[in-house]
Design a protein around this nucleic acid. Structure first.
Lengths: 136, 136
DNA sequence: GCATCTTTTAGAATAGTTCTAATCTGCTTG
DNA sequence: CAAGCAGATTAGAACTATTCTAAAAGATGC
């Protein structure tokens, strides 16, 4: 019998092919229960620890990678030596504020990109990332 | 009296406000004497060592950062945990072949991006990066 | 050629991430 | 609902990329 505390996350994880362990459910709750978020492994670790559920940093890394592989998260590469994960997996692009490291989504609805060359021979398009870098 | 061996690089470095030391000249030669290139610190280190000019890895890192700050190189962030430097500092974008890590330039002449939102309040546009991710 | 300020260097240090091997937990079965 | 098993978690070690440190070497101005 389940607690009724967060059946949504339990189900969502199961649907993604991941066992709904305490840690993964706790992480999913932090990640997905509000609006869209950008996190790093460190920031997520700090947040989940604040909920008094003990989760190791290794588990945070494991979970982020699994969530990304399962399509629950999208990894955004904007700066060397730091990975951001975005809970918004839909089509959109990013503002990156240097040097703070702040990241903001913007929808791709209104953005049109024309004239892109076709992929190199033997390759298929996988994604087009647009990063608008701004500074203060 | 100068050797006449590579006055171009010596001058180019001086013009960029950098003392033309042996190491920096050797690195500049490897980087700039052919066509446009993409390098990592490690790959550049291997190349310059092959020219029999001893240069430490720390110096390669220093030089890459200085060259980038001086506008001689552009840093391209495509994958977590690895920095690429591009000798092409003009307007252009990139194909990134996953999972090999291969990077190819393409000119931005024919590419038009319309409908980008304006930068967040208090910030100014610094650059728009387009990364076209492809796989085999 | 000397003095000075910059650069280089080897190696240590740091940051972010992954790995290892032991322990634990969720799920299935009887 | 106990037992068993596969998969998950953990602390800490290991690893990779990069930066730092302090000492030695080199470039430049006089």
């Amino acid at each position: 019998m389940m607690s009724g505390n967060s059946p949504d996350f339990t189900e969502r994880l199961r649907a993604a092919g991941l066992r709904p362990t305490r840690q993964r459910v706790a992480l999913a709750r932090v990640l997905f229960e509000g609006g869209h978020r950008h996190v790093t492994a460190e920031s997520l670790h700090a947040e989940v620890k604040a909920t008094r559920m003990p989760v190791s940093l290794a588990t945070v890394y494991n979970a982020l990678n699994q969530f990304r592989d399962a399509g629950l998260l999208r990894e955004v590469v904007v700066a060397p030596g730091r990975s951001y994960f975005d809970t918004n997996t839909g089509h959109h692009h990013h503002f990156y504020v240097e040097p703070d490291g702040e990241l903001h989504d913007f929808p791709s609805d209104k953005v049109t990109i024309a004239g892109l060359p076709s992929p190199p021979k033997g390759t298929r398009l996988s994604r087009v990332d647009v990063i608008v870098r701004v500074h203060r």
